[in-house]
Amino acid sequence: MRISRNKTLLAAMFVFAAGFATASSAQFNPRCEGCMGTYNYCMAQPGAEQWACAHEYNRCAQPAGCLLMPEL
């Protein structure tokens, strides 16, 4: 049981690190930063819905080759 828990923890840490590294590398693309600014502006509006803001971000980010957000 203990070995299984350690493997699960190691896998979770690896996934987190890989996601963080990917997200960090995407930040250096100026077009990605602009899309993120659009998302942040959208979320700052009164009554903003995350899925609608994520959709706007994805419309900007996809042609730029940035990571996409889930539209929940």
Rank of each mutant, 00 (worst) to 15 (best):
residue 24 S to V: 09
residue 24 S to D: 12
residue 24 S to G: 11
residue 25 S to I: 01
residue 26 A to V: 13
residue 26 A to Q: 15
residue 26 A to S: 14
residue 27 Q to A: 12
residue 27 Q to C: 01
residue 28 F to C: 01
residue 28 F to L: 10
residue 28 F to K: 08
residue 29 N to V: 04
residue 30 P to L: 08
residue 30 P to F: 06
residue 30 P to M: 07
residue 30 P to K: 11
residue 31 R to C: 00
residue 31 R to L: 13
residue 31 R to T: 14
residue 32 C to L: 07
residue 32 C to S: 02
residue 32 C to W: 09
residue 33 E to F: 01
residue 33 E to G: 11
residue 33 E to Q: 14
residue 33 E to I: 04
residue 34 G to H: 05
residue 34 G to Q: 05
residue 34 G to A: 14
residue 34 G to F: 02
residue 35 C to N: 08
residue 35 C to H: 06
residue 36 M to T: 05
residue 36 M to V: 06
residue 36 M to W: 11
residue 36 M to Q: 11
residue 36 M to R: 12
residue 37 G to L: 05
residue 37 G to P: 00
residue 37 G to V: 02
residue 37 G to R: 01
residue 37 G to A: 06
residue 38 T to G: 09
residue 40 N to Y: 02
residue 41 Y to K: 04
residue 41 Y to L: 11
residue 42 C to I: 02
residue 42 C to E: 00
residue 42 C to T: 03
residue 43 M to N: 03
residue 43 M to D: 01
residue 43 M to G: 00
residue 45 Q to W: 06
residue 45 Q to L: 11
residue 45 Q to K: 13
residue 45 Q to M: 14
residue 46 P to T: 08
residue 47 G to M: 11
residue 48 A to I: 03
residue 48 A to Q: 04
residue 48 A to W: 01
residue 48 A to R: 04
residue 49 E to G: 04
residue 49 E to C: 02
residue 49 E to N: 08
residue 49 E to D: 10
residue 50 Q to M: 10
residue 51 W to K: 14
residue 51 W to S: 15
residue 51 W to F: 12
residue 52 A to D: 09
residue 52 A to M: 14
residue 52 A to S: 12
residue 53 C to A: 07
residue 53 C to N: 06
residue 53 C to E: 03
residue 53 C to D: 08
residue 53 C to S: 03
residue 54 A to K: 04
residue 54 A to E: 07
residue 54 A to T: 06
residue 55 H to W: 11
residue 55 H to G: 08
residue 55 H to Q: 15
residue 56 E to Q: 14
residue 56 E to M: 10
residue 57 Y to W: 14
residue 57 Y to L: 10
residue 57 Y to C: 03
residue 57 Y to T: 03
residue 59 R to E: 15
residue 60 C to L: 06
residue 60 C to V: 11
residue 60 C to N: 10
residue 63 P to M: 09
residue 63 P to E: 04
residue 63 P to G: 02
residue 64 A to S: 12
residue 64 A to R: 13
residue 65 G to H: 10
